[in-house]
């Protein structure tokens, strides 16, 4: 399974790249701005210089940001296509969003509510639909989010690489119970998963 690139890493890389660049840019602009305001204050510099523009400089600050913006677009697009291209052999789980809980149907007809359990190091694909209004499934730990819309097949996939408990939430506003549509994601070992999935539903 090691040849699959975890899209979460790509998303993080894109986030670090853009946010990191933003910090540098913001810092530079702010420092230059404050420096100018202090350096050229009226008491010290009573006669301003009449500069109306500079073709060279203006071209530079059109072209340079254009390249940076383009590279950001590319990093964003790469991680997005990672999120969209599901590798073969993924476990498919049907997810139904309803007001106000999540129902999950496993391949062997097992059902859970607000609880997702899956094995480590296996790609998982969630197929979404809804029963009333639009909901959106968001698992922050795996950087996935997708709306559940009737009539359209929406999906998300991810690759859990660490065992543990994570949370998922609804992120498309759906009414009074919107904030209550919280669930637990449990990443367990392959063996535990098999035991769990075979166990009969308690409810």
């Amino acid at each position: 399974m090691n040849d699959i690139v975890n899209p979460a890493t790509l998303v993080d890389r894109s986030l670090y790249f853009i946010i990191g660049f933003s910090f540098i840019f913001l810092f530079a602009i702010t420092v230059v701005m404050i420096f100018f305001v202090v350096r050229y204050r009226r008491s010290k510099n009573p006669i301003p210089k009449d500069i109306r523009g500079n073709k060279m400089l203006e071209t530079v600050w059109v072209v340079l940001p254009a390249f940076i913006a383009l590279s950001m677009f590319v990093s964003g697009w790469k991680s997005y296509s990672g999120l969209r291209n599901v590798p073969e052999g993924a476990i498919e789980i049907e997810v139904v969003g309803q007001s106000f809980s999540w129902l999950l149907y496993y391949p062997n007809e097992k059902e859970t509510e607000n609880e997702i359990v899956f094995p480590i190091n296996t790609p998982i694909k969630l197929n979404l639909t809804f029963s009333d209004v639009i909901h959106s499934l968001f698992i922050p730990a795996f950087r996935v989010k997708v709306d559940a819309v009737k009539g359209i097949e929406t999906y998300a996939w991810f690759l859990p690489e660490k065992m543990g408990e994570y949370f998922f939430q609804c992120t498309e506003f759906c009414g009074t119970g919107h904030a209550d549509m919280v669930g637990v994601v449990k990443v367990v070992s392959q063996q535990e998963y098999e035991e769990w999935v075979e166990k009969d539903d308690e409810w």
Binding site: S14, I29, M72, S75, G76, K78, K145
Partner: peptide, 26 residues
Amino acid sequence: IYLFSVGGLTGLVLGAAGANIHVHDT
């Protein structure tokens, strides 16, 4: 200028398709 720059730069995070997925509607 300062606040708008922050707003604009974080807009780049939102504009990037993959990064957007994580922070959308948060």
